[in-house]
């Protein structure tokens, strides 16, 4: 049985004027780490809220653990863990008090499921008397995860857990998710960071309320249809402008220290000369594998 199944759900706001989620379907297998990848305003939070029974879909149906998100909301609320996008714990309670409170609300105790959160909790335990409002971004996130896990949920919904968190904490967070997955918990996570997509088992790329593609990160990258080139020069801005004006360019954009570009007929034999003639130096052109971000950019075009 699938852990999550979404069938053609649509969600609008302001009496139908704003379409947040537009006919979205996908499913997530038991024990899968599933990523919803897309920018702010793509509809990620609306999907999360419908799956956690907080919002009603306008159209379509969805199930979590086989329970309908509308009819069986009580069962779903008993069995899932949810970490909303914003830090949603009590800032004026300490780490310990927050954890105990949520354990009680979920009708369990910290001791009962301590094994689940142990790995994460030991990292923040030295500060357990500190109020949540005084914690660093990374620590808040760990506490929030502990609170979402304390009742041993079957499925974990994490809405943008790493937004605004520095790269080191982000990396640690994903390692924690990996370990949770090994314990058999289904995890659905959303993120605006493309580089985190490769850490998921499967991902859905989403933009403007529509799903652009659902697949494993590898498949998404492998099905990139064009040959992709990475081009480097000493003068970055000039390079970008020159690539844009090059007649054979079909798409070009900055990508780290390189510019990535695809060309009509996949022909780059003349490119080097063209770039030199425009005054660029230190030119380097290489054929590369696409990344998730490249795929996303292509899908957006």
């Amino acid at each position: 049985m699938e852990a999550i199944r979404v069938n053609h759900i649509t969600k609008t706001y302001n009496e139908g004027k704003v379409k947040a989620v537009d006919d979205v379907s996908f499913s997530v297998g038991k024990g899968e780490l599933f990523g919803l990848i897309g920018p702010d305003g793509a509809g990620k939070t609306s999907i999360f809220r419908m799956l956690t029974t907080l919002l009603l879909p306008d159209k379509g149906t969805a199930t979590v653990d086989g329970f309908d998100v509308v009819k069986d909301f009580r069962q779903i609320r008993n069995s899932v863990g949810y970490m909303p996008g914003k830090f949603s714990l009590y800032q004026d309670l300490t780490i310990e008090e927050n954890l105990n409170f949520f354990a009680t609300v979920f009708d369990t105790t910290v001791e009962q499921n301590y094994h689940l959160i142990k790995d994460i909790y030991v990292q923040i335990e030295p500060f357990k008397k500190r109020r949540a409002g005084k914690l660093s971004g990374g620590m808040k996130q760990k506490l929030a995860l502990c609170c979402a896990l304390i009742h041993k949920p079957t499925t974990l919904f994490l809405d943008e857990p790493t937004t605004g968190v520095d790269p080191v904490s982000r990396k640690e967070f994903w390692e924690m998710l990996r370990r949770l997955k090994e314990q058999g918990i289904t995890i659905m996570v959303s993120t605006p960071y493309m580089d985190e997509a490769s850490l998921c088992d499967r991902i859905a790329l989403i933009q403007g309320g529509k799903i652009l593609s659902v697949d494993t990160p590898d498949n998404i990258v492998n099905t990139y249809p064009d040959r992709l080139y990475a081009i480097k020069a000493n003068e970055m801005y000039l390079l970008l402008k020159t690539l844009e004006s090059y007649p054979d360019t079909s798409n070009s954009y900055a990508f780290g220290e390189y510019a990535h570009a695809t060309f009509k007929n996949n022909d780059v034999s003349e490119l080097d000369n063209y770039l030199s003639s425009k005054g660029l130096s230190g030119i380097e052109i290489k054929d590369i594998e696409a990344t998730i971000e490249d795929s996303f950019i292509r899908l957006l075009h």
């Binding site: 029974t53 907080l54 008993n78 909303p84 609300v105 979920f106």
Partner: peptide, 13 residues
Amino acid sequence: ETGTMEILLVSPF
């Protein structure tokens, strides 16, 4: 406002 209501709603309470 702080979003804790969301968590409380998604709980057996």
